[in-house]
Simulated assay, not measured.
Amino acid sequence: MTRSSDNPKSLPPFATMRAFEAVGRLCGVRRAAQALKLDHAVVSRHVRTLEEWAGVRLIHRVDGKTVLTEEGARYHARISTALAELNDASNELLLRNDESSLSICCVPGFAFEWLIPRLGAFQAANPNVKLELHATDEGPDFSRYEANVDIRYVPGDQPATRTSVSGVRSFEISRPPVFAVASPECAARLSYVSTPASLLDAPLLHEENESQWHLWFSEHGVATNDLALSGPRLWHAHMTLQAARRGQGVALANPFLLGDDLNAGRLVRLPADYDREVTLGSYVFLARADQWQTPAVVRFRLWLKDAAIISHLGRATLALRATREPTAIAV
């Protein structure tokens, strides 16, 4: 039996559908051309070819803007879904069968301050692994094979060794202490700071909101009662630390974010003589269960555990298992 899709005239050229989908999604030929890395004249020609094949107008200009016609909108909705499915299927095929490929998503602070400076060592030890790193606030959709591995900071007190996401395995990399830091110059201006409570009057640096500071104060027995805290929101941990290094205020940090800042004297702890440590969450490694034992994921997982241990050797608060996993790669 011959299917309609076997007829070469039943489908337009793929390039024309891809161009039209981008034009409709991005509301313009030039934007579509930039996204597809094509000349805008090529994209326009593809759309005209598709219109000629269909025998109907699919786009038109209204007040200088590219707008889909009624027929165009209906067709766009259907091919968008089909092209997205093709993209997902292709990503799945590549990630399933390319065991030398390693796509990592990672929370930005950990990526910028700790992971990137050490990736060269991993690549040197694993030259055949094709590595791709995405520093992102949003974790990947493992069901769509958007990445092999994800590293997140999970707030809370309970060990993050499990995940509620079906088909995903995880382990806790570390539950590091969190403390307040500032540049020596800023600390000198804040000489009155002798207890956590006295930091309430200091210029505080926040990530996306004030919640982490509220939690930190609470862990130190300081009731803030949702008090509005001073200071700018800088959204990412590595940005608050950069602002702290430049003397703009006090940031919260942990050893994975600080590197050698304390030893080098770029930052100091506040209060200076206060040695109580609290934890607010943990770094967690996640991967699809069916990719947990693929060679690239195994190598990266074992390397990550060793690197974290070496990075904070001797710290009693480092929450890593003392025993190594078997080094044999089971596929």
Rank of each mutant, 00 (worst) to 15 (best):
S183P: 05
I151A: 07
Q248C: 03
A308W: 01
L26C: 05
A32D: 00
G249T: 08
R288N: 09
L302I: 11
H40C: 06
P117A: 11
P159Q: 03
S10E: 04
P271A: 12
K37Q: 10
V149Y: 04
N87S: 14
E146D: 13
Y283F: 14
E71W: 03
M1Y: 13
L58W: 05
F179Q: 07
Y283C: 06
A188T: 01
A202S: 10
K305A: 08
L234P: 01
R233V: 15
A223Q: 08
I116R: 12
A296M: 06
T16L: 11
R48D: 07
I79L: 15
H134S: 14
L267Q: 05
L83K: 04
V23T: 06
Q158T: 15
R246C: 13
T327A: 10
P177I: 15
T16F: 15
N7P: 06
V297M: 01
F217C: 05
A84Q: 10
A197R: 12
S101D: 13
L318M: 02
D290F: 15
A319W: 01
R321H: 07
S10T: 00
W213T: 14
L227C: 03
R118F: 09
E70L: 08
A121M: 13
L234I: 09
V331K: 00
D201R: 14
D201T: 12
G247Q: 10
P13S: 09
L229R: 09
G64W: 11
S164V: 07
Y283I: 12
R74V: 13
G265A: 14
M239A: 07
A188C: 06
F122K: 03
V107P: 00
V29H: 07
S311Q: 04
R152Y: 04
P8C: 12
L313M: 02
R233Y: 15
T66N: 05
T294E: 12
Y283V: 12
Y75H: 05
P127Y: 14
H214N: 07
S198M: 14
V107H: 10
N126H: 15
R31A: 13
L36P: 01
F110M: 09
V154Q: 09
A84L: 07
L50S: 02
G265N: 11
C105K: 01
V29P: 00
A82S: 13
H206W: 05
I59V: 15
S100F: 04
R246M: 15
P140Q: 09
L280N: 04
V23F: 09
Q34H: 14
A121K: 08
G259T: 02
L86N: 03
P295R: 03
D306Q: 14
A264N: 11
S90Y: 15
A197W: 00
K65C: 03
F171H: 05
L258G: 04
A322K: 03
R276G: 02
T136P: 00
I173K: 02
K305M: 07
A243H: 11
D150M: 07
R315G: 00
P176D: 01
S166T: 03
D260C: 11
W53T: 00
R18T: 04
